[in-house]
Structures are given as C-alpha cells and as structure tokens.
C-alpha cells in the first residue's frame, strides 16, 4: 500500500510539474493579452517533434536547447503576424484563431512527420534507475524531468519578480498604457511574452516526448487538461496554476493507481444492485475508469460554483 502511495505521489509530481510548465506560459499569456491560447499544447507538440528531429542528428541535448528556441520564435511570429491582426475583432475571434491554429499545427505535423508514433528516446546517460523502492524502479529520466521543471520555475520566478524586465512585464499586465507612456514598446513585450510562453511549452514537449510518446495526437491529449488547470487555478494566476497543476497531476495518478469503485462506496451505505440492472454501468464504475474525466468534472464544478477559480481575482 505504501509503495503505491509513494509512486503515485512521485508520478503525480512529475505530471503536475510538466503540466505547470505548460500552464505557466498559458496563464502568463492570458493575463497579458486576455487570450486563452488554444494552440498552446500544439507548441508543446512542436517542441517534441523538433527535438526528435534534432536528436536524430545532434543528440538529445542539442534538441533540449534548440527545439524550444525554434518554438519560441515560431510563437512570436504567430503573435506578430496572426494574433495581432485578429486582436481588433475581439476575444472570441482570438479564441477562434488559436483554435484554428491548433487544428492547422496538428495537420502540419502530420504533413511533415507523418501519422505514426516517433521513437523519440531519452538520452542513454539517463537510462538508469535513480533509486529502487519496494522493488520498483524510479527512472533517472523522471528525476531529470522534476529537476528541469523546478529549475525553470525558480528561474522564471526570479526573472519575473527580481529583474528589471520582469518588473516591466508585470507593469504591462496591469497598466499597459502607462508602461507605453514611459517609453516601453508594449507590443514588443507582448510578442516577447508570447514567445517565451510558447518556448516554455516547447521545453515541456522536449522533455515529455520520450515519456508520453511523440505522436500527432499528443497536443489534444494534454491541451484540454492544461485548459482545465488554468481555469481551475483562476485565469491569470500563476500561483493558482501551480496548485491546480499539482492537484490535477496527483488526482489523476492516484485515481489510476487506486482500485476502489462505486461498489465500495455503495457497500459503505449497505446498498447493492443486481448486475443486470439497467444502470449497471453506473454502479460498477471504478476510479481508474473515471480518471480521465475527473479533471473535466472538476472544471465544470469550479466554473459553476466558483467561476473565478481557486486563486483568480479577475471577474469576466
């Protein structure tokens, strides 16, 4: 029991941190431009694919450095030549634009790399067990994922709160016009933040690619979950996104690792149903079965009862 608990926690942590790497960029972009970027997870997928192609020729580490850079430049270009143009038409048009972009990127990935799963591998250096607990191995690569994500967050936190650039960015979020009057190029800041946000998604893609497999559907798999996180955490709140990422990561890994179900719950109340009952599917539900829908259930509940999310202040 204890080993399940520990490994579920560790796996939840890995997933949660990975999710936060996506959610942090998404929520930063949202608080700045008010755009919920539907294509954010597509940049994550592009990161994985670029890193895969680079790793074929130059090895994993080159991919880790250059793939996010390429993704970031692409993201900045999308902001400059796409999003800025659509911006005048309002938020709905922007949301629709990023939706279309996500659609297009998925098709473009299939065009350039094909529909099959790519055998993008973690580097040999990290192919050993970091530690063995209760007979189960925890791979060094997962430890590396934790280290990278934590490192990036500390860096991001430091840049945002301590550096001059970070202070200008923070000011531009709340008072863009004042910042512009002070002589800063606000559109350029927006473009930069969009680029850095997408580059972060790219990093997530590079390090998640070998673990979560690199295939054209990987953006769809993660995309809606990241949305759930930024909404649950409260739109525009970095701290909220952090809590929600870990919450969702842990929730999913515990739900998958558990073996309880509706029957156990009903047993508690002393209720039982015949197996040929019309709603037998409902009474026989197990927690691992519903694990994929838990985030969405949480999303709908949060939106109904607390539309601002856990930490959000901003009312629509």
């Amino acid at each position: 029991m204890l080993d399940v608990l520990i490994f579920a926690t560790l796996n939840g942590l890995v997933t949660g941190l990975l999710l936060f790497m996506l959610a942090s960029g998404l929520t930063l972009i949202f608080s700045m431009m008010g755009v919920l970027n539907f294509a954010h997870a597509s940049f994550y997928m592009l990161g994985a694919y670029f890193a895969y192609s680079l790793s074929l020729y130059f090895g994993f580490w080159t991919g880790l450095i250059f793939a996010p850079l390429i993704v970031g430049v692409l993201g900045a270009l999308v902001e400059r030549y796409g999003l800025r143009r659509v911006h005048q038409a309002g938020h709905v048009a922007e949301l629709v634009f990023t939706f279309g972009l996500a659609f297009l990127i998925e098709e473009a990935v299939q065009f350039f790399w094909g529909r099959d799963t790519k055998s993008y591998q973690s580097p040999d250096v990290l192919n050993f067990a970091l530690f063995t607990l209760f007979g189960q191995e925890f791979s060094a690569y997962r430890g590396f994922m934790i280290a990278i994500s934590v490192g990036i967050f500390i860096g991001l936190y430091y840049v945002l709160t301590r550096s001059r650039v970070g202070i200008i960015i923070q000011a531009a979020i709340t008072h863009p016009n004042t910042v512009a009057n002070l002589g800063h190029n606000v559109p350029l800041i927006f473009m930069g933040v969009f680029g850095v946000g997408t580059a972060l998604a790219g990093v997530a893609g590079v390090i998640a690619g070998p673990v979560l497999t690199t295939f054209p559907g990987m953006a769809t798999v993660l995309g809606s979950i990241v949305f759930v996180i930024v909404v649950i955490g409260g739109l525009g709140s970095l701290a909220g996104a952090f809590i929600a990422s870990l919450l969702i990561g842990l929730l999913q890994s515990f739900a998958i690792a558990s073996d309880v179900g509706m029957e156990d719950l009903l047993d508690l109340f002393g209720i039982s149903f015949p197996y040929d009952h019309a709603l037998a599917d409902l009474w026989g539900l197990t927690l691992p079965q519903v694990a994929p829908i838990l985030p969405f259930l949480l999303l709908v509940l949060v939106l109904i009862f607390r539309p601002t999310g856990l930490m959000g202040k901003r009312e629509e």
């Binding site: 919920l36 938020h91 709905v92 949301l95 809606s224 949305f227 759930v228 909404v231 739109l235 019309a278 709603l279 037998a280 599917d281 409902l282 539900l285 079965q289 519903v290 994929p292 829908i293 969405f296 259930l297 999303l299 709908v300 939106l303 109904i304 539309p307 629509e316």
Partner: peptide
C-alpha cells in the same frame, strides 16, 4: 450564466466529459 470565455470553457469541459463518459456507459 456567462457568455464569452467562461461559456466556451464550460462547453469544452462538458464536451470532454460526455465524450469520455460515452466510453464508460456501454449500455
């Protein structure tokens, strides 16, 4: 209750919820 982004998010959540449930409720 709300239009705009909140409505879009709820519709997305419910869509995913129903699509995922449809694989669970086989009957």
């Amino acid at each position: 209750r709300k239009a705009g982004t909140v409505f879009a998010m709820i519709s997305l959540g419910i869509g995913e919820l129903i699509a995922a449930s449809s694989l669970i409720f086989v009957d």
